[in-house]
Write a protein that binds this DNA or RNA. Sequence first.
DNA 1: CCGGGTGCGTTTAGGGTGTAAAGGCCTCGG
DNA 2: CCGAGGCCTTTACACCCTAAACGCACCCGG
Lengths: 277, 277
Amino acid sequence: MQGEHMTPEDPAQPVAATQEGQVVAGGVEDPDDPTDPDLPDNRAGGTEVLAGAQPPRRGLDRHRIVSTAVAYIDEHGLPKLSMRKLGKELGVEAMALYRYVPAREDLLDGVVDMVVDELYADPDVYLEPRHGWSDYLQRLAHGVRRIALAHPAIFPLVATRPPAAPWVRPPLRSLRWVESFLSALTTHGFTDDQAVVAYRAYSSFLLGHLLLEVAQRGVAINAIDDPDGNPDASRHGLAGYPLIVRLEPELSQDETVAEFEESLENLINRLADMLED
Amino acid sequence: MQGEHMTPEDPAQPVAATQEGQVVAGGVEDPDDPTDPDLPDNRAGGTEVLAGAQPPRRGLDRHRIVSTAVAYIDEHGLPKLSMRKLGKELGVEAMALYRYVPAREDLLDGVVDMVVDELYADPDVYLEPRHGWSDYLQRLAHGVRRIALAHPAIFPLVATRPPAAPWVRPPLRSLRWVESFLSALTTHGFTDDQAVVAYRAYSSFLLGHLLLEVAQRGVAINAIDDPDGNPDASRHGLAGYPLIVRLEPELSQDETVAEFEESLENLINRLADMLED
DNA sequence: CCGGGTGCGTTTAGGGTGTAAAGGCCTCGG
DNA sequence: CCGAGGCCTTTACACCCTAAACGCACCCGG
């Protein structure tokens, strides 16, 4: 769009300048932007975490259960997951799962943890900052975004589920990443207080943006899955909302990539300003 | 995601002390900051959205059902709500509800809508900007925050549930507020594009921040509700995280009010800058 | 006055869910 | 060879959502 100031601090930005700008005419919303580098389909390295052995082997263990649950939720959505279905998926009776998983709630915790742990397998995200703190934040944000887009049905759980360390405000799932974050900042000029402030601002921005993005994506996907949604049906009671009607082209445009980039950059700039004071 | 706040029928009550309220000590501070103006207990005026007739009258209608559901979720948490329980609450069999509510999912939509509609009853939030656009944004943000804090167990639904107009990106629940937002900005110097950009940035900031805040609040409340949480248990595997341990005082401090204020102000400044270019 | 709708709540029923408890099978170590 | 676990299945219970049929009380036109 317009003003596009990258952080001058680090020319080796992991993400090239977003210059998609081109939009499919007719206001049609195609959620799969082929230029979005965080979309799973556009990822180069085939990082298939789930080693789907097609024949339902007889070896049952917690990891296999949880990863099957992840795949099942990815495919059918969270509400469809039940112990019985998951058992069937594994060629086993529901009760067998209870030898490895104490309860359904616990299973969901495991699902969240496993998905969050995909960050460790992401070659573009470093646990330790190698090219400065702002590069670190950029990479981490895109890594988390990749996870969100890869598991849109699971990501809301990350935000909703009670966290591991309740006394961390705001709480995030992975203590290891909190530690990594704080370390990256405190070793790069941030005071303790500044690092904590930065952590709060960063995590709430990231969560909010991705949750919204995933929600709208889920809707689009649901619409495909469940094609009773007449496209004109949503336009029904729009009589009283002239501005929404007028701005429909802009509103229905998928600017999530650009908006994400811009907000992230702004946040980082804000943190940089904080550093100078 | 448990809630413990009563419906604000009687705001004159000071901090509500739960009967089983053995206060859990430990690192978690008291989440009820008596200086936070958005907390329901610190609110002055009476916002009696829920007309709760104490005796279970025989008149059944959709509004009464939904508002009872809101109260029930506020008190017992979302997972405890079932048609049977809600029926019992209303002195009626579960199936009776189906004359007014097509299904449970629909009921939850109604719950979200009712909670969002509390904005209209908020005397401090104007549908039209009276003191400039930035005052409008401030008031709106605090109004939404008040709702989130009044219904911590319900607010995650607002973010999670598929929206009314899927083609609005990002989608928010209330078309009326989207319209109001766009109107406020476009009549105060914003171009159409700028207004849409502002809408995106604003809504994702607000959602992210409040979701995080409500989640951490829910945790603290859960700890009271369900006192199996040994305060030392959270400190279990903290051996490998020296920074978290060192920054524990800062991290466990409840800075949500200040952080909210600061982020909101920063966002508004950013929008103001956009206006000048 | 009456008799049939009509609105509203209840009963019944069927399939689904989480999970506690007990029962079978099969493979090991002594 | 035999007992002991480990691993999975069976059974059972309580609860869930909801479709369908049923009663009951009212109202309203004849």
